[in-house]
């Protein structure tokens, strides 16, 4: 279980990215974090594993407050938090297997990781995870030889290799096409329910969030302005999160996209006939 208590972040420039965010994410819950760009979504999840240092508040993972930890202890606690990134953030020039095994870095001594001498159990687990995300045959490929969807699967396997108690997911579908996006979201939700893993998912695509999330938190200018199940995410709620104009523009964009998709579909059907 993760509990955020009064979490705040003010950058040295004086911009308040987060102010007084308090949330509780119970085991097994997938929580979507939505909001306009600049609302602090990315800062929030980076404050949890302290890739960004919060200025005030508590991050309680189980009983441990991550904010007060020293360098070494923070490293050990980071193993409990798996992270999945927007543009995959795989080490491009390493093989898929090395990328998955890099999830074990917090557990193995330096010389083992340097010589790529991982224990049999680690390697088995890595293979098992690759099999789970459907990339068993790609283990020896270099990461930069994969497609976007495949890379994000490797990213998921890397995060799971850590044996995490919490997943932080930063815009997992931002650089993927709509179909692959849905596959990735499905995979993520399946994995979380299999392992009873809580997850916080940053997501800019509201329909996708409504489809896959159990709970949605809306962030605006660093404050929580909505917290509830997707069914409660009404027009008025979305307007409070995104503001009048942005929300209308977004909806319009969605409608255009939907029209274009429908159009393309009919054309394809016409061709197939």
């Amino acid at each position: 279980m993760l509990r955020l208590d009064g979490l705040s972040k003010t950058y040295t420039t004086g911009d308040a990215a987060l102010s007084d965010v308090s949330l509780t994410v119970p085991k097994g819950q997938i929580m979507g974090l939505i909001g306009p760009s600049g609302a602090g979504k990315s800062t929030l999840i980076r404050c949890i594993n302290r890739l960004v240092e919060p200025t005030a508040g508590k991050v309680l993972l189980g009983d441990v407050d991550l904010v007060t930890l020293g360098k070494g202890e923070l490293r050990r606690q980071r193993r409990r938090v798996g992270m999945i990134f927007q543009e995959y953030a795989l080490v491009e020039r390493l093989t898929v297997m090395e990328n998955v095994l890099s999830g074990r870095l917090g557990y193995v001594p330096f010389w083992r990781s340097f010589l790529r001498r991982y224990s049999g159990a680690d390697i088995q687990r890595a293979y098992q995870l690759l099999d789970r995300v459907g990339l068993m045959d790609k283990a020896d490929n270099r990461a930069d030889a994969l497609s976007g969807g495949q890379r994000q699967r490797v990213g998921i396997a890397r995060a799971l290799a850590q044996d995490p108690e919490l997943l932080l997911v930063d815009e997992p579908t931002a650089s993927l096409d709509p179909k692959t996006s849905r596959q990735i979201m499905r995979l993520l939700t399946e994995i979380c329910s299999e392992r009873n893993l809580p997850a916080i998912v940053n997501i800019h695509d509201v329909p996708l969030a409504q489809q896959f999330m159990q709970r949605i938190v809306g962030l605006r200018s660093g404050r929580v302005v909505f917290d509830g199940p997707p069914s409660e995410l009404t027009e008025t709620a979305l307007t409070t999160i995104y503001g009048e104009e942005d929300w209308n523009a977004m909806r319009q964009g969605d409608e255009e996209q939907a029209e274009a998709e429908a159009d393309a579909k009919t054309r394809l059907e016409a061709l197939a006939r």
Binding site: L90, E92, L105
Partner: peptide, 25 residues
């Protein structure tokens, strides 16, 4: 920087971040 950040997020030590995040690049 994103590749390096990703390795840091796994709880890797400084030397491991060098050897996995920076050296391959």
């Amino acid at each position: 920087a994103r590749q390096i950040e990703a390795i840091e997020a796994t709880g890797a030590r400084g030397a491991q971040v060098l050897s996995y995040g920076i050296v391959p690049q």
